[in-house]
Structures are given as C-alpha cells and as structure tokens.
Amino acid sequence: MEYQYPIDYDWSTEETVDVIQFYECIEKAYEQKISKNELMEAYRRFKKVVPGKADEKKLTDEFEEISGYSAYLAIKKAKDSDDGEMISLSAGKK
C-alpha cells in the first residue's frame, strides 16, 4: 500500500525507525502472520517513543484511518495470545 506513516518530525532517526517498524508489524499482522513476541517487542519500542496514551491513540487512530489496520486490535490479540503464538488478523480488516 502507498501511504505515509503518521510520525512526529521532532523524533530522532532511531525513534522514527522504531515507530515505523511498529506500523509495519501491525501491517504484517493483517497481511501475513507475525509472532506475538515480535509484535510486542515492536510495541515496547513504540511505547518508549510514544509513552502517553493520548499521543498513542492519536497516532494509531491516524494509522488506522490511512491503512485500515487497527493497532489496538492487533495489540489486544497479542496480549490475549500465548508466548510464541502467531498473530493473524487478515479476516478482521475493515
């Protein structure tokens, strides 16, 4: 898909990469499969860059609006899954 990821231009290059990798993991959960561990590690790095709930919601809502992929649903499914389990939301795309 061709769209721009929601980012903050005040972030460092490393922070921007971490956030983009998180978005890519969400895409992977919908388009293929991703391990719970990989998704949750990307989420932990994302949360270091975006620690506030309001900022997280703003960014993930923007991402969902442009991509159709819900970070909330992907993270919820990962949290409800066993370690090492593969996460796939392909049937859940809006």
Rank of each mutant, 00 (worst) to 15 (best):
M1L: 11
M1H: 05
E2N: 06
E2V: 07
E2P: 06
Q4V: 10
Q4N: 13
Q4L: 07
Y5W: 03
Y5I: 03
I7E: 04
D8W: 00
D8N: 14
D8E: 09
W11S: 08
W11L: 06
S12T: 15
S12R: 14
E15H: 02
T16E: 06
D18W: 13
D18P: 15
I20P: 12
I20K: 14
I20T: 14
F22P: 12
Y23M: 12
E24P: 05
E24G: 07
I26R: 05
E27L: 11
A29F: 02
A29S: 14
Q32G: 10
I34C: 06
S35F: 09
S35H: 07
K36V: 01
N37H: 04
N37R: 09
N37T: 14
N37M: 06
E38F: 02
E38M: 01
E38P: 09
L39K: 11
L39Y: 01
M40N: 07
E41S: 13
E41T: 12
E41F: 02
A42Q: 05
A42D: 04
Y43T: 12
Y43R: 14
Y43S: 11
R44G: 13
F46P: 10
F46W: 02
F46K: 00
F46C: 13
K47I: 07
K48T: 11
K48L: 15
V49P: 02
V49F: 00
P51A: 10
P51K: 08
G52W: 00
K53T: 12
K53M: 07
D55F: 03
E56I: 08
K57A: 12
K58Q: 03
L59I: 08
L59V: 05
L59D: 00
L59M: 09
T60I: 15
T60A: 07
D61W: 03
D61L: 08
E62W: 01
F63G: 03
F63V: 10
E64T: 05
E64P: 01
E65L: 05
I66C: 08
S67D: 05
S67F: 03
G68S: 04
Y69E: 10
Y69A: 02
Y69V: 03
Y69R: 10
S70V: 06
S70Y: 03
A71C: 15
A71E: 03
Y72E: 14
Y72T: 14
A74W: 00
A74V: 09
A74F: 01
I75K: 02
K76G: 08
K76I: 14
K77R: 12
K77N: 04
K77H: 11
K77L: 15
A78G: 04
A78T: 04
A78Y: 00
D80E: 15
D80R: 14
S81Y: 00
D83W: 07
M86W: 06
I87G: 05
I87V: 10
L89W: 00
L89D: 00
S90H: 08
A91D: 11
A91M: 10
G92C: 04
K93G: 10
K93N: 09
K94Y: 01
K94Q: 06
K94R: 13
